[in-house]
Simulated scan of single mutants.
Amino acid sequence: MKQQPIGVFDSGYGGLTILKEFIHTLPQYDYLYLGDNARAPYGPRSFETVYRYTLQCVKWLFAQNCPLVILACNTASAKALRTIQQVDLPVINPENRVLGVIRPTTEKIGALTATKEVGILATAGTVLSGSYLIETEKFYPDVKVYQEACPMWVPLVENNEYESSGADYFVEKNVKNLLAKGGHIDTVLLACTHYPLLKDKIRKYLPDEVNLLSQGEIVANSLVDYFKRHPEMESRCSKQGAVQFYTTDSTEDFDTHAATFFGKSIRSEHVNIE
């Protein structure tokens, strides 16, 4: 069978934390990862720019024969997914699908809070979009969602400063800001795929009774459920256990950083996206 990998897209390295969970949960499938590192970070960019960049990358993944593309990027999911699904997909390829990480996360998070107060740590772009508030309201209208933008966290991670004492200053500041917004937050979501690398530091500044959630396992389990509900898509995805990596920037730089997120060394290829 001709290879039809599951496309996994992120603005940079962070989506590798999602891909790692996909491979752990569904190792039999083929995957093609694309990191748009040349234009990262997406977080501070406008809705129009994120949409344009994301659409270009989705089209490229479709051209590589990916029938299903996962936007493993909260900013792209928040700023571009809905328009791509509703406006572009019917024109480009109505048989293909593009999914994000926000909806499957909000489907689960409301069930994990006893106090009905949830905290979201995210990029400025994701916070500004209000996507987590909107999607949580659909599934759990009685749950209050408090957000905190953490603009310094991605640069800290991508510059290998996430274990430094300097990182503690920003992590402590943002975590305390979040907790101050709601008096009974008992569940906190890391709504950026970079943030799991800061998890130990974040945990240090949270009360012991607060649940701290990463998205990888949630999104991977959601993909399992999606395939059960959509066998027509599941059958289109090839199963040879192959994984390919592409970046729009330096492959040497990507491979060096990718090992931190993916958990093992990889070899990527360069691609130009326009």
Rank of each mutant, 00 (worst) to 15 (best):
4 Q>A: 12
11 S>C: 08
15 G>L: 07
15 G>F: 05
15 G>P: 05
16 L>S: 12
16 L>Q: 03
17 T>K: 12
26 L>V: 06
30 D>R: 04
35 G>I: 08
38 A>H: 08
40 A>F: 02
41 P>E: 11
44 P>D: 13
49 T>W: 02
49 T>V: 15
56 Q>W: 01
85 Q>P: 12
86 Q>S: 07
87 V>Y: 15
88 D>T: 14
91 V>H: 12
92 I>S: 03
92 I>M: 12
99 L>E: 10
105 T>F: 05
106 T>C: 14
109 I>S: 15
112 L>G: 04
114 A>Q: 09
118 V>E: 14
118 V>S: 07
119 G>K: 01
121 L>N: 09
123 T>A: 06
125 G>A: 06
126 T>L: 11
127 V>E: 11
129 S>D: 06
129 S>G: 14
130 G>V: 09
153 W>M: 06
156 L>D: 09
159 N>C: 07
159 N>P: 01
167 A>C: 07
169 Y>H: 05
174 N>D: 07
182 G>A: 07
186 D>S: 10
187 T>F: 15
187 T>A: 09
187 T>Q: 12
189 L>A: 15
189 L>G: 04
198 L>C: 03
198 L>T: 04
200 D>T: 12
201 K>E: 13
210 V>M: 13
212 L>E: 11
218 I>G: 02
218 I>E: 04
220 A>V: 14
225 D>F: 11
240 Q>W: 03
246 Y>Q: 05
246 Y>E: 11
248 T>H: 05
248 T>Q: 09
258 A>K: 00
260 T>R: 01
261 F>V: 02
262 F>H: 02
263 G>C: 07
269 E>S: 12
271 V>E: 08
274 E>N: 11
